[in-house]
Computed example of a mutant assay.
Amino acid sequence: MKKLALFLTIIFMTMSYGQEIKQVPQINTNGEGKVKVAPDQVCISATVETKGNNAKDVKKQNDEKMDAVLKFIKKMNIPTADFKTKQVSLNPIYDYEKKKTSYNATQTVEIVVKDLSKYDELMEGLVQQGINRIDNVVFESSKLAQYQSEARKLAIKDAKSKAEDYVSVLGQKVGKAITITDNSQVYPPRPVYMAMKAESMDASGASNETLAIGEIEITATVSVSFILD
């Protein structure tokens, strides 16, 4: 009886193992989706930097300049929700040759400009009010999440189209997807530059091109495994 039970157990295990290793015909492909759009806003990171020998004076001068900068930003009718202080610092700098300590104060403000027609006037005014370092200027889309979704859908369609190309000569069909892997990298959208003409005219009456606003390219990549019917 024990031998019979052992024999049946071995048969059951063998059948189970056979079922587990049964291969399902499938095809694996990669897909890429790209969406190019014109940006409708710009994010500017600008810094006031002040140096001097007295920490109190350096901080005071830096504060006064930043106060003028913030007042100018408000004057440009930038909503308060669209600009904020990102960094404030006051650091001693020791000169070993002269054996003296100086001080360096910085304040950085980040501004999101949703009306690109204000860009030139804003940048010029920032410098006039005391900004002496533009750290970053990034053109963006306010509908980034929507375009990322579109890019992902295009990537899936691309993967399925490739799979259909491969199996079409085999007399088979692409069935359901069994795995989908998102391979998209978390990077800012890549700019694709092109010139944008400014409204202003130079002395000769010709229009100036002051801003290369271009397009931004939003990319999604996926890997998909399809069952073959």
Score class of each variant (00 low, 15 high):
residue 70 L to R: 03
residue 70 L to M: 05
residue 141 S to I: 04
residue 102 S to Q: 15
residue 89 S to D: 12
residue 193 Y to R: 00
residue 119 Y to P: 00
residue 180 I to D: 11
residue 153 K to D: 09
residue 147 Y to H: 09
residue 131 I to L: 01
residue 177 A to H: 01
residue 73 I to T: 00
residue 118 K to P: 03
residue 163 A to E: 12
residue 161 S to A: 15
residue 108 T to D: 06
residue 163 A to F: 09
residue 155 A to S: 03
residue 77 N to A: 12
residue 130 G to H: 02
residue 165 D to N: 14
residue 82 D to G: 01
residue 118 K to S: 04
residue 148 Q to F: 08
residue 106 T to Q: 09
residue 109 V to N: 10
residue 150 E to P: 00
residue 141 S to D: 02
residue 101 T to N: 12
residue 68 A to S: 15
residue 83 F to V: 08
residue 192 V to K: 03
residue 142 S to Y: 06
residue 104 N to D: 15
residue 105 A to V: 09
residue 196 M to G: 10
residue 179 T to Q: 15
residue 68 A to R: 14
residue 78 I to E: 00
residue 136 N to K: 08
residue 143 K to E: 11
residue 190 R to Y: 05
residue 68 A to L: 14
residue 111 I to A: 07
residue 187 Y to N: 14
residue 195 A to H: 11
residue 140 E to S: 05
residue 127 V to Q: 15
residue 182 D to S: 09
residue 165 D to W: 07
residue 134 I to H: 03
residue 76 M to L: 07
residue 150 E to T: 01
residue 167 V to H: 01
residue 130 G to W: 01
residue 137 V to W: 04
residue 108 T to V: 07
residue 138 V to E: 08
residue 173 K to F: 09
residue 147 Y to F: 07
residue 122 L to C: 02
residue 129 Q to V: 07
residue 125 G to L: 10
residue 124 E to T: 07
residue 129 Q to S: 06
residue 76 M to S: 08
residue 187 Y to F: 13
residue 171 G to T: 07
residue 130 G to C: 02
residue 147 Y to N: 05
residue 145 A to F: 11
residue 156 I to G: 00
residue 189 P to A: 04
residue 138 V to P: 00
residue 68 A to Q: 14
residue 201 M to F: 05
residue 111 I to C: 12
residue 135 D to L: 01
residue 122 L to G: 02
residue 177 A to G: 00
residue 191 P to D: 05
residue 137 V to T: 09
residue 172 Q to K: 12
residue 172 Q to N: 14
residue 106 T to S: 11
residue 195 A to K: 11
residue 86 K to F: 04
residue 101 T to P: 13
residue 188 P to T: 09
residue 199 E to F: 04
residue 73 I to E: 01
residue 69 V to F: 08
residue 145 A to Y: 12
residue 77 N to Y: 10
residue 131 I to T: 03
residue 134 I to C: 08
residue 184 S to V: 06
residue 167 V to I: 06
residue 105 A to R: 13
residue 194 M to S: 12
residue 151 A to I: 07
residue 186 V to H: 00
residue 118 K to R: 06
residue 79 P to I: 00
residue 124 E to K: 05
residue 68 A to T: 14
residue 187 Y to V: 15
residue 168 S to E: 03
residue 152 R to K: 14
residue 133 R to A: 00
residue 164 E to F: 08
residue 137 V to F: 03
residue 204 S to D: 15
residue 110 E to S: 13
residue 117 S to P: 12
residue 99 K to C: 01
residue 106 T to N: 09
residue 176 K to W: 08
residue 137 V to L: 07
residue 191 P to T: 03
residue 116 L to A: 03
residue 170 L to E: 14
residue 88 V to Y: 02
residue 64 E to T: 11
residue 80 T to Y: 06
